[in-house]
Design a protein around this nucleic acid. Sequence first.
DNA 1: ATAGATAATGAATGATATTCATAAAAGGCC
DNA 2: GGCCTTTTATGAATATCATTCATTATCTAT
Lengths: 247, 247
Amino acid sequence: MNDIHKRPSRRQGKVSKTESGGGQRLPTDVRAAGILAAAREVIDEKGYESVLISDIAKRAGVVDGTIYRYFKNKRDLLEQVAQRWFGEQLAMDSQLNAVKGTRNKLRHLAWRTLAIIRREPVLARFMLMELRHDPRYRSTPFFEMNKRFTQDVIAVCTEAVVSGEFLSDVSPNMLRDMLHGCIEHRTWAFLQGEGDFDIEEVADGIATVIYRGMLAKRELAQGGLYEAVKRIESVAGKLEDLMVGKS
Amino acid sequence: MNDIHKRPSRRQGKVSKTESGGGQRLPTDVRAAGILAAAREVIDEKGYESVLISDIAKRAGVVDGTIYRYFKNKRDLLEQVAQRWFGEQLAMDSQLNAVKGTRNKLRHLAWRTLAIIRREPVLARFMLMELRHDPRYRSTPFFEMNKRFTQDVIAVCTEAVVSGEFLSDVSPNMLRDMLHGCIEHRTWAFLQGEGDFDIEEVADGIATVIYRGMLAKRELAQGGLYEAVKRIESVAGKLEDLMVGKS
DNA sequence: ATAGATAATGAATGATATTCATAAAAGGCC
DNA sequence: GGCCTTTTATGAATATCATTCATTATCTAT
């Protein structure tokens, strides 16, 4: 048991009892899946920030180096974990089509995002606080996934603009950002592990402001409708008085 | 030149030419300021993500270890840099009092945040993407600073609610989150170094939606005013017909 | 000037991610 | 079933940083 099987080195490390290459061999996809599952478990238990490759390797029953045979690097692995995890959440999403009315749709879109955050806070923290910061974020498949998810807001708003229900002076993109930006801001404290939030209240609040803020009808009130009605009501009152007096 | 001045060790490292303790001694506050300035320069040049303690030390003309005499750790140093930097930005802020009208105030509040982001993108990136992620973020002086900054939105909205201009069914806190959340969402791509954004357009869009969405007058339109007017108009038409027929 | 206090030094240490030469297992061929 | 090729797993070695601390140089008060 000398060190001929070790790569050349200047330091003299001690030779381990275990030989190289002696691990159990599994089909590639099974091993990869095992590592992904192990990673997810560890993340879920310890939070993404303190996950070590060695933790994941231990949990998966392999050695650190093996992980690099299946994943480019740590980030790549974590990204794939998040992607699958998020995918599952999207899959269990209720159908937007079933919801009727622009305001209800907006509320639903806010609600479903909040529900995911509440259901999987660790995943949400991971996505919001870590994955996004990758300089390459916008070219990851993960970005596309998320984009498709948030696009629904744009679709609903665009439809409302086309039908004339919404004014067209604020872009649907902006409304999407208001909705999702507000949610993120609002849930930040929760994701840091401090205090809870009320899903219904937040969803309703966001939907309410955006809906009312974009409603075309409302233009009439601003254009003098309010004053007009007051005048008409007063005239009507007098008219009624006249009629009462007549009878 | 033997190694008696080194701490006990098992490895035999080579002894350097420079002796320990031979650096220039400066007043404590001057040195601290120098390190802060150096750190800020390096951050501004390379972005916060790739800043090394050794970079900062080199720039400040000290050795790595010296930094730990003035700052608890790397994060502490970077936090102090951001705090001063952000403080400067707040100081050059225009006065909110000078702006009249709820909607204009909201627009101004959005505008000033966007202006800081545009002016100091590296600082903004640093604040949004890094400092916030500290598990202790909410107990840092930095958090307080930011809170006071965003509080203005709450003040403006609360005032509008009290005066009866705004409805009271959505909390001012939520409106603050919509405003700042939207800004962050909107500027994310910009902060990643991709594409620009139009300050005026974004500020105006946010202010418009929130303002119109909260306007008390508009409630009447939703509460049937619109339909009421339609009815009155139709009645008025018939009345007119009657009168025409009579004459 | 001298002693004591304090600042600055930089090698050592520690924590992790990542690489890679080598051993073991699997698969194909006769 | 033995032999050769290909693939997988290993884990020590390495690289990269942040952080510590024993030691030394400088400063300050007396």
